[in-house]
Design a protein around this nucleic acid. Structure first.
Lengths: 230, 230
DNA sequence: AGTGGATTAGAGCACCGCTCTTCTTTCTTG
DNA sequence: CAAGAAAGAAGAGCGGTGCTCTAATCCACT
């Protein structure tokens, strides 16, 4: 009971890792519909029924991959953000945005799983947890901007009461230094980041935009400017 | 050869319609992964191999459903837009946006198929064709605004050359009355509409926003304002 | 009336997720 | 240290899938 790292446990963890790795490979090649427990088992030289000792069902495997993907994209974004001089707010934002886009282009199937999975309960949403790391990063960025005397341009448009209540509660838990207006702008920026990547990846702008990197950069500059990061 | 509506052809069309209808029902209930030719055949009292006279593969059936879905959501948006007094630009925009959202909430699986389908070649993208009807509608709206002396606020930010070239080509084919800046704002508005709906449907704002209708209305008002439709 | 093309039936192939039962390995405990 | 318990691996099997092939049937036109 005390020995957490028994030989058994270690080889189990290793095998779990290998299964996920092989599954991720299949996912990348054939899409989520083509991910097959049997094929993964075959690739690993084991029999399909043995898989169920590690993941109780195919959906659980997929859920684990989704969790890992959330973590991977967030880590990429965080790393990019910290690689830029802390005072360079716009640079940090652009780095985070570009890293997120680059990860999405490198892992399109996982991106799709993360950002367009239907009701499937296995959604680790909310600001806490892996899915919230990037939005939290953006909030941090805007907070830095506000503390440096910049921040989102004041929006004279009043926020509806219901929305204001939601933002207030969010502010209390995660962004005490921001006003509701500023928080609204921040949430919108996060949405615009995902939207820009998704519209490229899912072809919404096919035959409209051909130079996607330029378009993305243009849009993200605009978002950063509206956030007052300049 | 001359008789286009032979009895054979009529019953064939009717059956094709019934197949799509049953498939759409299954799609709505079980998601695109759960759509099964055999189940559709069972529901229609035919044998599975007979399906292949109507759709050469499951993917082709899905592609047909996608096409129909594009048409359905666009028709809903157009209908909503024309139900508002023509001069009421903001009202028309809000009607189009709300109708699109309402359709998405009523047909989440089809929405997901349309707006987050991965590379699957069966993407009828581009401004012409069913996928372009809503963006075209928005362009029309902004054109009306410009002709009424309103339109998107001037953006002093210069557009990168590559993006400008893309927009110029788009303008030539579809929006001769708009400047590149105005067209860029229009494309962005279209992206924001889809993003708002997607973020709700896919749970990106779970535990952040609780009153989605209010939030959507707030955001779309903002977009309409930036488009100069007020 | 009969012939030819479109349609349907049915069997079959390879694959899938998942379960159950049997066998083997490893860990724990007396 | 040995024996029992727990965990894992193997294999067969169930019902389901997409898709193909062959044989039977229907229907329209000459």
């Amino acid at each position: 009971m005390v020995m957490q790292t028994s030989a058994r446990a270690r080889v189990r963890d290793e095998l779990t890792r290998e299964i996920k790795e092989a599954a991720r490979r299949q996912l990348a090649q054939q899409g989520s519909a083509g991910l097959s427990l049997r094929a993964v088992a075959r690739e690993l030289g084991m029999v399909s029924s043995a898989m169920y000792r590690y993941f109780p069902s195919r959906d659980d495997l997929l859920a684990a991959l989704i969790l890992d993907a959330h973590d991977a994209v967030a880590s990429a974004a965080v790393a990019a953000g910290t690689s830029v001089r802390h005072r360079n707010l716009l640079g940090r934002w652009l780095a985070v945005a570009s890293a997120t886009r680059a990860w999405a282009l490198a892992h399109p199937q996982e991106y799709q799983l993360i950002f367009s999975s239907r009701p499937g309960y296995h959604a680790p949403a909310g600001m806490n947890g892996p899915a919230g790391r990037i939005p939290l990063l953006v909030i941090e960025l805007v907070t830095d901007a506000v503390e440096a005397g910049r921040g989102p341009a004041a929006d004279e448009r009043p926020i509806p009461r219901a929305v204001r209540a939601d933002l207030k509660s969010l502010r209390g838990s995660v962004a005490p230094a921001l006003s509701e207006q500023q928080l609204a702008a921040t949430v919108l920026a996060w949405t615009e980041l995902i939207a820009s990547i998704s519209s490229e990846l899912f072809g919404h702008l096919h035959n409209v935009i051909s130079d996607y990197p330029a378009y993305f950069d243009y849009q993200m500059h605009g978002v950063g400017q509206r956030l007052g990061l300049t």
